[in-house]
Design a protein around this nucleic acid. Sequence first.
DNA 1: CTGCGATGCCAATGCGTATTGGCAGCACGC
DNA 2: GCGTGCTGCCAATACGCATTGGCATCGCAG
Lengths: 361, 361
Amino acid sequence: MTDAPPPPRTAGSRRVTIRDVAARAGVSQPTASLVLGKHPRARVATATRERVMAAAEELGYRPNVVARSLARGRSFALGIVVPDLRNPFVLDVVAGAERVASSAGYAVLLCDQSARPVSSHLDTLRARQIDGVLLDAVGAAALPDDALRGVNVVLIDEPNDRWPGVSTDARQAGRVVAEHLLALGHRVMAFIGPSSDVHAFRMRERGFVETLRAAGVSVPSERWRRSAATVRGGQAAMRTLLSMVPRPTAVFCANDLLAIGAVKQCLTQGVALPADVSVVGCDDIEMARFITPELSTVSIPARELGARAARLLLSFIEHPDDPPGPQTRAARAALSRPLPVRLVARGSSAHAPGATPVLPS
Amino acid sequence: MTDAPPPPRTAGSRRVTIRDVAARAGVSQPTASLVLGKHPRARVATATRERVMAAAEELGYRPNVVARSLARGRSFALGIVVPDLRNPFVLDVVAGAERVASSAGYAVLLCDQSARPVSSHLDTLRARQIDGVLLDAVGAAALPDDALRGVNVVLIDEPNDRWPGVSTDARQAGRVVAEHLLALGHRVMAFIGPSSDVHAFRMRERGFVETLRAAGVSVPSERWRRSAATVRGGQAAMRTLLSMVPRPTAVFCANDLLAIGAVKQCLTQGVALPADVSVVGCDDIEMARFITPELSTVSIPARELGARAARLLLSFIEHPDDPPGPQTRAARAALSRPLPVRLVARGSSAHAPGATPVLPS
DNA sequence: CTGCGATGCCAATGCGTATTGGCAGCACGC
DNA sequence: GCGTGCTGCCAATACGCATTGGCATCGCAG
């Protein structure tokens, strides 16, 4: 009556399990498991192997990852904890990591810190037997010691002696900006950055200030502004800076969102950019090129950073050898090396008003 | 010797399982399961229940989600498939969904279509016994029929008679832009949009054109530009438009990235905005407010869209009743209703050059 | 004291896969 | 022809939790 024509897969339309495959191939379930599991050179006769493979193919067998996870104690999934998805820089990191993980057969569990605290996310990740976790810009302070026991961890832009990590040369980022602005003749500088304890931000700050100091330029503390690392934060801080006497001629913002806010605030108040004041950001998010004037900034390879973090994590997951072999060790060292940064001078920075340009030799 | 002080949890530092809890509470494993599972009014004596709860607390018991998934045939996880993570609008949708899912105890598996094809993502999601999938702007054509059997699906911005979905009133978005530009006196209009078959884009387009037509304004096909929905795409299309005679005085871009590109191109070529040409976008991404001039656009509640999609999906997952009860049905209807959109007039649109302003009554 | 329903608990089993240990069968040496 | 060492396969078990069915125990009415 209501009998449909014979379905293409199994009769009962149940999911195809490895048992079905074994039955069809005329072998036992463990044998099928041996064939279909990784182990390429398991002790299985070639003829048998081929029969099993054929049966699996014909039935459209897909291993149940949940069952496999339970049996192996691994989930073939990575967690990635990010500070705030709304930051386009963070996004690129995620995209880079997702691509690598996904094509290695790992799923990516996304955890937004702005929605729930890290420790809570870590709890649920552990409950899922997560194979590893990427922590992006998560202060070590937020990490209870035992929240990560037995989990592989790779930190992003937040070096720490307890776990491996990938990073960019954040200090260098601060340096190149300082050099750039000094070369343009600026002497009255300012800085805008978040008060968070995120390592990358602190290093950008440090690289900036130490280079200025070496050149004999000091920045009084009232021109060292703290503000949430958002566009609005940049606007607010810039408003304050613009009211100072003397007004700074150059401002370094710890990320592009802040810089975009700073630029915006200048334009709003009729301050000419870059004639009256230069603004330089950091990250080189896509939008930096599309505001007016185009934003001078430091290019950080965010996607590559995420990709490397994922690769490093996968290396720990798939080769838990202790100690690691020489080439594993070398590969990890390469992945851990800070990524170089590069100044991208665009239209938001120019010679200081009235300054004599310093020509590069 | 190396004996550490007695560890806080169990002796062997093994994971705490439900058996450990049962043993400590002096009950059998199934009883512990009854207490710790959902079932609030299972037949368990209050005293027993409390002993089990206390034991779980003392041992720091965390249920193993993988095992639970296997036993229940559910994974307490959602997949979200997105077209391209680099679009900030998409990102907000993800963020909204993540927040809802996460606080309901569901994990979110992120799948980027630009990295791997949808069908491949769906395969891995099914293998993980995913409870449901959110598909953001995925053309139905990309969905093989059996790739989703037995999976709950909610579509985002891509209505379809096979699955439920959430959406915005995209057609209305096109209408309000047309009305806005008409009211400003524009008659020489242009459009920039992607050639993809994504429903929301098509509807924005349709709402725009039908409103113009009703007002007796037609747009010749050469002013109807197809371009990838990115900033670069907007630049390229705008370049073409600016070379036309007569030059359009107003351009509607199907999303904000395109619009930002269009604005950028105008400024690059020295075309005054909004004096010579008006540009209106759609989505109201955060950056719309921060370019110069600020972008007129249509506000789409992306975060809310993602949140609703997640709520709707959770409703199907947790109340698979067929037919649903009246209040379930009502709740779903409310979630499925298209979200209203709103024109946000900012600085990138103004009266047509030489036109007599039409005053609103 | 017997019978009966309700209550509280547990033994057994299942979810789909991986792994261990061992048992046949075969080829080879002597 | 008997041990020896392989190779190829499978039976049994484990992973951690959920669920089913049934066995006690208890209170209470007869």
